[in-house]
Design a protein around this nucleic acid. Structure first.
Ligand SMILES: [Mn+2]
Ligand SMILES: [Mn+2]
Ligand SMILES: [Mn+2]
Ligand SMILES: [Mn+2]
Lengths: 226, 226
DNA sequence: CTCCGTTTTTAGCGTGGTCTAAAAAAGGTA
DNA sequence: TACCTTTTTTAGACCACGCTAAAAACGGAG
């Protein structure tokens, strides 16, 4: 049977697989902020339920049914995040904690109604794609870290690599939000920082670390016109 | 520390106190569909936390802090019910199960934002009053069970005594919704049933049991005009 | 006051999940 | 290959919360 903890583990496995290809116990320890023994223990449970495939000392793999649970949990998580930002006016650094609870509430029917109410959003407030009801990943975008842009690029912020509270609050303090359009004015080789120009003409320097965590789209010419 | 189970118990104690004045273990067994030993056990926990006052074999009493937790849980429950009905188009018999989970999510800030988003509703989809952020009960209404109405009354459904799924689905099947205005045409003494007239002219007979569970307001003359 | 049915508590167990500490396995380096 | 560090598993404990069965207390009727 599904529990909050089991859904959290399955979701974490899905994300780690997505990020790094292979899922170790250690990676789960870090992602879930737990202890190795707890991970081993839960993997036994998930394996018995037929949601993961796991041999001792080997990498973890989601089964089809495990992946399906993970995807619908992730779908609920991201839809509730959209709800909290769009309808309740929370900022993107405040929503994760509540979505972590809300993702465990509701069935498919409720989720689909929420999805419809929100206008079938494709991305969550951090720019992460929202799986469809059929468990499809809709991420066909071509994003690059802002650290890889060059002088002269006009770029739009479409996502973040690290959606931890600390980094998001850092972006908040710089007044950087999803959808923001910047122009790269200058790039310093020695520390990887870049100077960017805001829509209002203001100029700021962004550190290499900040730029690496910002996922942007390079704007084409016709898009500049709209 | 607050847990889902503890919040459910506190809420149940509040409601039983409201309904019948005094809270016995037995009443909690019935309300929470659990066993006497579980109740005794939890009362020890709640008492240790300072949320209830309980001496063996005596009635249970909420402390100020316990009542505060119970009220905010009830507030969240009823606000989420409004959300599910008003925004996601669920019917009133479908919302309780999800509200039972949602009521455990969010802090005061989130609750107040939800409240504002919903337009500060005073009543939930079953006609029950929603406690304010300050923990006030806003129920100054003068409702009576429809069983006590007399021939000639024009009445409006404002609440239900029993908001269990079964009864609500029964009302659904009769096409009876909150806010519905009916006129009492006939009352049969021998079985307590009454014949009522719908706004569209249709006439139906309602059983004594059904009428006893419908809380209505007798409409004054000037209200008939609007 | 004594009985007896009801309510409540106690005792003991089960389940799901966490943790620490220690043992075992893995895997890279000398 | 042998060693050493890291990773994973095992062993054993703990906590929250449910349950059953039996004991104890309560409270009304005779
Ligand atoms: Mn979660
Ligand atoms: Mn997100
Ligand atoms: Mn609940
Ligand atoms: Mn309700």
């Amino acid at each position: 049977m599904q529990t909050i903890s089991r859904e959290d583990y399955l979701k974490a496995i899905l994300k780690i697989e997505e990020e790094s290809g292979s899922v170790s116990n250690q990676a789960l320890v870090e992602k879930l902020n737990t202890r190795p023994a707890s991970v081993t223990n839960m993997l036994r449970t998930l394996s018995d339920a037929g949601w993961v495939q796991h041999e001792a000392y080997k990498a973890v793999h989601l089964t089809a049914s495990g992946k399906s649970i993970a995807l619908s949990t992730l779908r609920r998580h991201r839809l509730w995040e959209v709800f909290l930002v769009e309808k309740l006016d929370f900022s993107w650094d405040e929503v994760h904690q509540w979505a972590e609870d809300l993702e465990h509430v509701g069935d498919e029917e409720l989720t689909n109604r929420l999805d419809a109410f929100l206008g079938h959003p494709a991305f969550d407030p951090h720019g992460d794609p929202i799986p469809t009801a059929q468990g499809q990943w809709s991420d066909g975008r071509n994003l690059l870290p802002a650290s890889l842009t060059v002088v002269g690029d006009r770029i739009q912020l479409k996502g973040v690599v690290d959606s931890g509270e600390e980094f998001l609050q850092h972006l908040n303090s710089l007044d950087i939000k999803l959808g923001l359009i910047l122009e790269v004015l200058q790039a310093l080789d020695f520390d990887g920082s870049k100077t960017v120009k805001w829509p209002d003409g203001r100029e700021t320097s962004l550190s290499k670390q900040t730029l690496q965590n910002m996922l942007v789209e390079r704007l084409e010419f016709q898009e500049r016109e709209q």
